[in-house]
Structures are given as C-alpha cells and as structure tokens.
Amino acid sequence: MHALSLYLHFVRVRIQSQMEYRFSFLMDTFSHFCVTFLDFTSVALLFARFHTLKHWTLWEVAFLYGMIGISFALAEMIGRGIDVFPRLVVRGEFDNMLIRPLGTFYQVLAYQFQLRRLGRTSQALLVFCIASSHLGIVWTPVKLLFLIAAIIGGICFFMGLFVIGATICFWTVQSIEVLNIFTYGGTEAGQYPMSIYRYWFRHFFTFVVPLAFVNYFPALSLLGKADPNGSPMILSQIGPAIGPAFLSLTLVFWRFGVKHYQSTGH
C-alpha cells in the first residue's frame, strides 16, 4: 500500500513539473496524436487498394493496431524511466537509487512519467473503438476483463523489452539501439496479423520475443476468429498471462545486472 501511494506521489510530482510548460505539453500531446494518425492512414490506404489481407479486413487489422498501440503508448508513459536508464547510469543517479530503502526497478519506474504519451494512447484507443463498433463486437464483462488483461499483458511485454535494454547498460553503459528492432519493430509488426508473416518470423515473435501472445492471440479470441495457421485456441486464452511472465523473467536478469553495477568514478 505504501509502495503504491508513494508511486502516485512521485507521479504527481512529475506531472506537476511537466505542466510547468503547459503549452509545450499540449502541443506535444496533440502532435503525437496527429502523427500516429498519419501512421494509421497508411494502413487504411493499403486496404483501400487491396480490401483484404489474407482473410483479414481493414477493421480487424485496425483492432489489432489499436490494441498494440494502447499497450505500447501506456508502456512508454509508465516505463519512460527504464527507457532513459543509460542517462541515470552516466549521471550517477542510479547510485542515489541504491542508497534508498526501495526496490531499484520500482525507483526507475517512478523516475519519470511521460504524460504526453496520452496523445498516442488516445489515438490508438479511438482507432480501437471505431474498429470494434464496425466489427459489431458485443462487450460482455468477461470480454472487457479479458481485453484489459491483454492490454496489461502488452504493457508488461514492452516494459520487459525496456528492462532488457536497460540491464545491458550495466555492462555497456550505452544504450543498445538494436533493441529498438523489438520495441518499435514489434509494434509495427504487431499491427498486422501474425498469420501474414513467414514461418520463422512468426515463430520468432511467438516463442523468442512473445509479441504474438500479447496482441495477436488475445485479439483472435476477442474477435472469435480461428488462427488461419491452426494454432490451438488455448494460446489465445493464456495470452494475457505471458506478458507478466516475460516481465518477471527480464527482472531476474535486471537483478543480476544490479549486482554487476560498477558505478562511475571510483
């Protein structure tokens, strides 16, 4: 309970300082909203030309797009601190976290809260809502809960990727740009149904980097669609649990990294 209220305290302080530059904040949020919309327009244009993509309609793809967009934007909003972790190491601010009676991961999370990601979140949410109304999905409480679980699973998944990137900094100090392939590349790939991809690519994003579990499989279940590749329905049902599992696995790696932290300037 203390941890949660303290976290909210941190977040409030962070939001206050972001609000000091209100105009810049609003412009940033708005431009985020617009830019990501352009992004979606390109998907829509594709469908204007081809109508369907291997048995997937525009609104079904928009559904996938919205789901992963919400997860990614929220992960960036909450997990911004993990994203900027190299800076914490270089400036020695991570030392300050180690002298506090709080968990390190918790403090890195509390270090920043990027409210302007609301721009992207609301854009993705809008696309998602329009898509789901076109598809005529009836939101029963069970479905709604499943959706929330899937979104949380997605947030955990992306934060897990951030954690891997941050942990590598314990050895390299610099950030590893290669990991953007999985974060940004992951969101791009996840906007389209897994079934359109080649075998190796699909399996990589299912079993190595479990992107399919946080987006594609839960979406299949919500849409009441069977996987054209014939994967069992159980994968869809356990989907939301994979995100948290992935995150906890990356946190084991994180703790290992903390033990190898060398600090700066001895």
Binding site: S17, G92, D95, L98, I99, P101, K259, G265
Partner: peptide, 25 residues
C-alpha cells in the same frame, strides 16, 4: 549489498560531487 534496503533505512549518504536530491524539484 545483501540487505541493501534495510541498510539504507539506517544510514545517511552524501556525495560532495553530486546531489542525492531530485535535481529539478
């Protein structure tokens, strides 16, 4: 390093080279 949090609760640390407070607060 094994009981970092418990230890942290009972010690105070100051580095002359840089603040342990929040820079922009």
């Amino acid at each position: 390093h094994e009981q970092r949090k418990e230890n942290a609760r009972r010690i105070g640390v100051v580095f002359g080279q840089r603040t342990h407070l929040w820079f922009d607060l």
